Amino acid sequence: MMDLKDFLDYVNSGKEVESPSEIQEMFDELLLEATRIKSKLNCEYHTEDEIREIFSELTSQPVNESLRLIPPFHTDCGKNIHLGENVFINSNCTMQDQGGVYIGDNVLIGHNACILTLNHQEDPEKRANLLPAPVKIGTGAWLGSNVTVLPGVTIGDGAIIAAGAVVTKDVEANTIVAGIPAKVVRKVNENKCSNK
């Protein structure tokens, strides 16, 4: 079995993950570990410090003291989540992070948000193969409730993703997007009407 560093190097390269393969076997191993740790996180009361400690175990890296996370939290890996400072993650967030989830400082993530980093091959003969692609969320971004972010998307600094939006392509900094698929509504703080 490969080690975690080799696994992360492979998925972060963006190479296709064939099924079956040694990489796919590692996906399964990490899923079992994440399931065990999530059960501990999600099935009983914890203080904020305990939540951060369990989240650190889930990600296998230190978590800064400014993280605020409201369980339950869901992932099928956990090892490729990277958080800045002052991140708030509301309840029932799902991060499918094998392809890498990178979250900047001062980010707000609403209830039931879903961040995905894996896609499947279109070819039915290779449909079980996985295509990892990172999601990057810039400093000060805000994802509303029930937002879905698809693999390979970058959300710019200060952007707002309206509740229920499905983000299929990059979002510019300081832009508000909404809908399915998400489309630009306006710039943040843009004066929509004038009294002059």
Rank of each mutant, 00 (worst) to 15 (best):
M26C: 04
M26H: 01
M26Q: 08
F27I: 11
F27S: 06
L30S: 03
L31H: 09
E33L: 10
E33D: 15
A34L: 02
T35K: 12
I37R: 08
K38V: 00
K38I: 02
S39H: 15
S39W: 09
K40R: 15
K40D: 09
K40Y: 00
L41R: 01
C43F: 05
C43E: 10
E44Q: 15
E44P: 02
H46W: 07
H46N: 11
T47E: 08
T47K: 10
E48F: 07
E48P: 12
E48V: 06
E48W: 07
E48G: 10
E50G: 14
I51E: 10
R52W: 05
E53L: 10
E53H: 13
I54K: 03
E57R: 04
L58T: 05
T59A: 13
S60T: 02
P62T: 10
V63A: 12
N64M: 12
E65H: 07
L69N: 02
I70F: 08
I70S: 14
I70L: 14
P71M: 00
P72Q: 08
P72Y: 03
C77S: 09
C77T: 03
C77R: 05
G78P: 07
K79D: 05
K79A: 08
N80S: 14
H82M: 00
H82I: 04
G84L: 11
V87N: 06
F88W: 10
I89E: 04
I89H: 04
N90K: 11
S91T: 07
N92L: 08
N92H: 15
C93V: 14
